[in-house]
Design a protein around this nucleic acid. Structure first.
Lengths: 371, 371
DNA sequence: CTGAAAGCGCTTACAG
DNA sequence: CTGAAAGCGCTTACAG
């Protein structure tokens, strides 16, 4: 009669209680670190737990306490333009996304939450279902850039707290993003006024990305208002990937187009590809063409020329997203106020060499494109 | 009487059943795609689900079906030697670990599992508890390089399926790693015989990493057996980070030590730092000192000189780890055979420039260290 | 094909 | 301080 419950399957709270000679309620109390159990009781329980190698079941816990202590994160596994190999691995590393997730995870850990991650392909047909399955496994969801349509978003937000990243705030959806307009205007001003460039271009990211739209518009309007020319059109449509940047420059050059004096890119990865392709064709950066990025990923300062870009507090974005989500999860029934519609984090332009500014004297550099 | 259950909290299977005019059993059946429910029934249920925005609760599901469809991954958030800033962000990107996790996640997704990730600090005092909490939330655990002592491992493996990465197989613990000995011997042979280098060194990774131990020993023994000298000692103890590599080379140079003709590094990141520091002091790689890595991370071929290294199938390691874990999770009670003790994936040496071989003519290069 | 009912492993009022 | 009992939201034999 002893074998029944301590058989092959994992021990439960009942096994612990029996072994310790107490009720499951007492076991639960020491498990949750309540202070009622007497030291004696506590010790008996602890001993039984250790002997049995007992691990409380998270599902049962969650069901009972109505909190899973898990937040879900969904992001796109993008496969960028294929340039034939040089940047083939790039999209697998997802620099930006991974770093945001790290920020979320660290913030979550501080509150006893863990991260359920789920990368999806843009073309996935079962996406809505995937996301619902995820939603069922967590207390709230953080959705990266454009993984769901606005409609899909509103649907899921009816029952699950949702925070989007670089998206648009909605009825029940909070959004966290970083400031783009001011910094892009400042960048345009810098290129036009400080460096005197008169012919510029902006290489766009995904057309459906709000950040991209704002960056392109702010940059263009500011440059034009200062009397500079800004090249536009489908030839300048990138996809946030280095391979995309390479392809655009190669295309332009093979068409015999005359390049602008400066190219502002939607993000650092695009700038990386652009600099690569320019170097490949013998153009000097910034001598012939100045190039700028956005994000300030770690590699930006190791590039040669060092990349002038706009610094986003990447991990901070993740951390803030978690905090907002956490407040939505816990507030839920109590607080009548809705979630903060939007959190906007500050950015700042980082002038390095690729725009034409002098090199920072202090930082030695690791890499440079072939000349 | 209608408001009771469709109140503010999320709808449950009971709400759906009531609305559709069927039993919860029927709802459950369409939820799980069984084929008994008649089309009529199914339609009524689907309609109710859509109208209510119902999302089945994962915890309840898991508790009832005894499967959470979640695997946990624990890895170290390492803070490498601080070299004063240049590589400060490096450890935040965790190239290698993230790529393994991506492999796990993709493989998991194919079987309807999601990933619960948890990065821990080496120095975390609550680590055992953290891991137990994680364990309770998933069906099985994948542990990266040395997150737990052997004792801790055995304890948790008593009740949870566990697969380690680059560790050592144990009683109930499967291990997935890639081959290191043969490739390091081949690398030593290549440096000594093909290039004629007679004075070598191996910059180690974490001393407690089995991979590191094997790499160092294989390399050293092979080189020595071919009559070459291999420098050893604490001066060559790295920590798998670029910053560590930088520090070692700077230290050596500042001590006025005469450098070996070739330095084999425990991994690519270390090699990156080593090349950086050598370039910083005016040494030519491979002209003055040849340098090699291990891993073949994406940046290895973009470096100038292109990095000679050993290619590991990184994502494949993650994918295989998941598959083994999945078989342990599902087999459990049924199959009497234990888990495969160990899975070893093949590696191969990739000869590029940093060892002294001629450049690959086909691949253009993006970056190179300052000369 | 469908429903009533038990049970998964916890937490938490409620009594004592 | 401790225990008996209800309940969290599902799944799944078991009858019908």
């Amino acid at each position: 009669m002893d074998t029944r419950s301590k058989s092959d399957s994992a021990p439960t709270i009942y096994d612990v209680a029996r072994r310790a000679g107490v009720s499951i309620a007492s076991v639960s109390r020491v498990l949750n670190d309540r202070d009622n159990p007497r030291p004696v009781t506590r010790d008996k329980v602890m001993k039984a737990i250790a002997e049995l190698g007992f691990v409380p079941d998270g599902a049962a816990r969650a069901l009972s306490s109505r909190l899973k202590h898990v937040v879900g994160v969904v992001f796109r596994r993008v496969y960028g333009t294929d340039d034939g190999g040089t940047f083939a691995d790039e999209t697998e590393s997802l620099l930006f996304g991974d770093q945001i997730n790290r920020g979320i995870e660290i913030a979550a850990g501080r509150r006893g939450f863990d991260l359920l991650v789920c990368s999806v392909n843009i073309d996935e047909r079962t996406l809505p279902n995937r996301i619902l399955t995820i939603a069922g496994k967590c207390d709230g969801l953080i959705l990266h850039d454009q993984v769901l349509s606005t409609a899909g978003l509103e649907t899921i937000a009816r029952t699950t707290p949702v925070v989007t990243l670089a998206g648009q705030p909605g009825m029940d959806v909070a959004n966290v993003r970083s400031e783009s307009a001011d910094s892009m205007r400042e960048l345009a001003r810098h290129l036009v006024e400080d460096h005197g460039y008169r012919r510029l271009a902006y290489i766009a990211g995904h057309a459906d990305s709000p950040d991209n739209v704002v960056r392109g518009r702010s940059f263009t309007e500011q440059a034009q208002s200062l009397g500079a020319e800004v090249l536009t059109g489908p030839a300048w449509q990138g996809d946030y990937s280095a391979a995309g940047g390479v392809e655009i420059v190669r295309g332009l050059i093979s068409l015999g187009a005359s390049l602008p004096r400066a190219i502002a890119c939607a993000n650092d990865q695009t700038a990386l590809g652009v600099i690569y392709a320019l170097a490949e064709h013998g153009f000097d950066v910034p001598g012939d063409v100045a190039v700028t990025g956005f994000d300030d990923l770690p590699f930006a300062r190791h590039l040669r020329p060092q990349l002038t870009t706009v610094r986003q507090p990447i991990q901070e974005i993740g951390a803030r997203a978690f905090e907002v989500l956490h407040s939505m999860i816990t507030a839920d029934a109590s607080s009548p106020a809705g979630p903060p519609a939007e959190i906007v984090l500050p950015t700042r332009i980082v002038r390095r060499e690729s725009c034409g500014c002098p090199a920072e004297p202090t930082t030695p550099r690791l890499w440079r494109p072939i000349g």
